[in-house]
Structures are given as structure tokens and as C-alpha cells.
Design a protein around this nucleic acid. Sequence first.
DNA 1: ACCTGAACACCGTTCAAGT
DNA 2: ACCTGAACACCGTTCAAGT
Lengths: 228, 228
Amino acid sequence: VLTKKKAPSAEGKRRKPLDRERIQHAALVLVERDGLDDFSMRRLGKKLGVEAMSIYHHYPSKAHLFDALVDRLLSQIEAPDATQPWKERARSLSLAYRAVLLRHPRFAQFMLLHRMNSRSGLAWLESVARIFADAGFDAESGARAFRILGYYLMGAIMDETAGYKRGPSAAEPVPPAEQAAIAPTIIAFGPYFASEHWEATFLAGLELVLGELERLKRRAPSRAGGGE
Amino acid sequence: VLTKKKAPSAEGKRRKPLDRERIQHAALVLVERDGLDDFSMRRLGKKLGVEAMSIYHHYPSKAHLFDALVDRLLSQIEAPDATQPWKERARSLSLAYRAVLLRHPRFAQFMLLHRMNSRSGLAWLESVARIFADAGFDAESGARAFRILGYYLMGAIMDETAGYKRGPSAAEPVPPAEQAAIAPTIIAFGPYFASEHWEATFLAGLELVLGELERLKRRAPSRAGGGE
DNA sequence: ACCTGAACACCGTTCAAGT
DNA sequence: ACCTGAACACCGTTCAAGT
């Protein structure tokens, strides 16, 4: 029938070899389409038109592949201008981080829980910590500020990507007709939980946290004598 | 050999029938021992001395069983005295919630991500929301305060149970010898990330958030005329 | 009523073999 | 060098059968 055999023409790319870029891209698309639970190496293989086992030639395990996806998203976080005041830098970096994760809401659940002890993960943590160090926080107040901001970002983004509206449901959710009897206050607050309010809520919380971190600040003993 | 057959004696309980209580208890022990990823209905069956399929007679699916575990832990949260000032109530409830989850650090990762739309889940959310409603927050500022506090708690507890020290590692972590070169600030902050500091960091963040939520507060229009 | 055992449709990964 | 196919040791769940 109409099979051109071995024709090394321009269209001969029909089955171009796998490479990491194609695998990563397809993996992210698949995770976002089907969710983390339904992602599998076998399904990824099918999507790439290849046996699942071929992927192992490029990544030695699913864990390695997922690490590469973490790297890929971390590299998309835009670094803020380091000459800005620290609060401005912290705000920009927080928003950039959130923006990347909200673009990949299902993968976000993996990434937020993942230990950042790869090379790129450590570099990312360092870029946040340096904001506080540059601002003159000492190690204790810097570490504390780093953690508190991190807690807020982690919780907020987790909730936005996997919270009440999007997360896995109870096996037997309460039918809407009964909800008002059990949780009248939650129902009353309901309109302000809608996604139109997420941005305003996130920003309000971020300003609240950043504003207060200023007060936590204790200066590091300065060597150059430029301190107090 | 020494098998007493069908002896309906007091010791005949050797193989007492399954019940929900035994299943739940064994499931929690197994999750905490082996982790969520290595938990399976088959392993739970083995631990109970029973075929995995017997469990399905008591819970129709793994999802239903896990919902029951969520209920069980929610019921362990001690409700604070409702006559206290709202900040005191919010602080007590936050600490009670955290205490329960820290006692079950591996199951916490499931519970924190789980949609609270079961009967007990909604009741739990309601008990938090009511603190703000009772304090006179209107729906908008109440909803916002509820979320911001929730973000902080979720992130903090997630990090304490699945963060840098305990979470799933990268497939190829950076060897310690290289860490200082990549992330000097993180290494400098390191001592204050240790678990001895978790409590102080959590409390500092909690006070920071609760203190600022006070300012978010806008009064609900009061019907009884007892307002401003 | 409660439990079992085989079966179904899946997993991630190993390994020897193909081109 | 890159990909395949069978196999291994697992999953959650269904279902007919046992007591």
C-alpha cells in the first residue's frame, strides 16, 4: 500500500528518535491532562508512539524523569532584579513561583512536596534565602523569615491547585442540599472562596506576611562596618 | 497436634472477626510505618491475618477506608472553649490541628490534600469559620482570614511532615560536599532549619498571621443593633 | 454474614534480544 | 545507539464460590 520504505526524505521524520525534550514535554502535557495518579510510563510511551521501555534509555527511572520536570519548571521562574529593596524582590519571586506552578496545577502537587535537594532545587532555595541575607537578616531571623514565607507560599499554592475546588474528593461527599445545615458559615463565606477572589486573597496574605517579616529582622553582625 | 477444634472457649477469640475499628487502627499503623506509597490493601490484609478481599466487606474501597481515617483524626482535634476571645480560639484550634497531624506525619500528607467535603470534613471547616463569624468578621473578611490562616497551617504542617528533612528526595541529590558551593546561604541558615526550631518558627508565624488578621477584620452588619 | 481465591486490567522495572 | 517484548513482582477491585 502506500508505505515508502527507508526513503530518507524530509518527511522521513515521521518517526524521529526520542529525546529528552520530547519526553519532558509529553510528560507534562499528560500529567496536566490526566492527573498525577493516572500518569504512567506505559501511557507516556503510548503518547510518544513508542514502547514504554524506550523511555528508560533516556531516563533511568520515573523518579529521574520527574526530577527533570522539576528542573524544567524551576528554570521558568523569572529572577527579580537584585537591586530592588528586599520586599520587592521577595514579592516578585513569590509571584513568579506561583505563576509557574499555577500554569501546571497538577504537577504542582508533586513539585511542592518534593525535596529540593537536586542541583537546581538547591539553587532555587538559595535564590530565596539570599534575598533575606542581602537584606541583612542574621541567620536565625533569616531562616525564620524564609520558612514562614515558604509555609505561606506552599499552603496557598497547594490550596489553589489541589484545594476545595480541585483536590481529590471524599468518596461520599455531602450532597449540596445538606451542606447548609452542617456548615452555614462556610456556605455564607462561599462566594469569597470562588476563584475570582483567589488573586486578591493571595496578595492580601502575601503583603501581610512580608509586612510582618520586616519586624522579625535582626541584623547580621556586619564585618565591613557598614551596619549600625 | 494441639489444635482444639471449634472449642467455643474464651481463648477461641484467636481469630476474632474483622471490624472497622481494627481495620482503621491497623491501617494507620501501617501507613505510619511504611509510608503512603507502600500502603496497599493487600499488605493491610496480611497485617490483619486475612485475605485483602475481606476488607472490602467492611469498606467498599480504599477511598472509603481513607475517608474513615480522616474522620478518625478529625475527631481527635480538641475543640477550644468558645467563650474565649477569637484569637485565643484560633490559636488553640490551630495548635490542636497541628498536634493531631504531627502525630500522624505520613497520613498528614493525604489528609492535608484531601477535599473536606465529607460530613465530618465540612463540620471541621465550619468550626474554624465560626471563630471568625463569632468575632464579627463579615463574609468577605471572614473568608479571607479563613483562607490566609488555612494557607499558613497547610504549608507549615506540610513542610514539617513532608518537607526538606522528610519528604521524597530527588533521585540524585547533591552530595553534601558540593552543597556549600551551590547554596552557601541555605547552609548558613541550616542550624535554624533543624527540628528543634520548628516549634518556635511555627509559633512565630502563627502569631504573625493572627496578629495581622485582626486588621483585616470588617464587622458584619449586625441585626440586633449591638454593633458599633 | 463474613471470608476466600481466581481473575482482570493495570503498575514500574529488569533483562536478553533485536536493528 | 536506540528500541522492543517478555517477564517479574506488584497494584485495586470484581465476582463466583465457599462456610
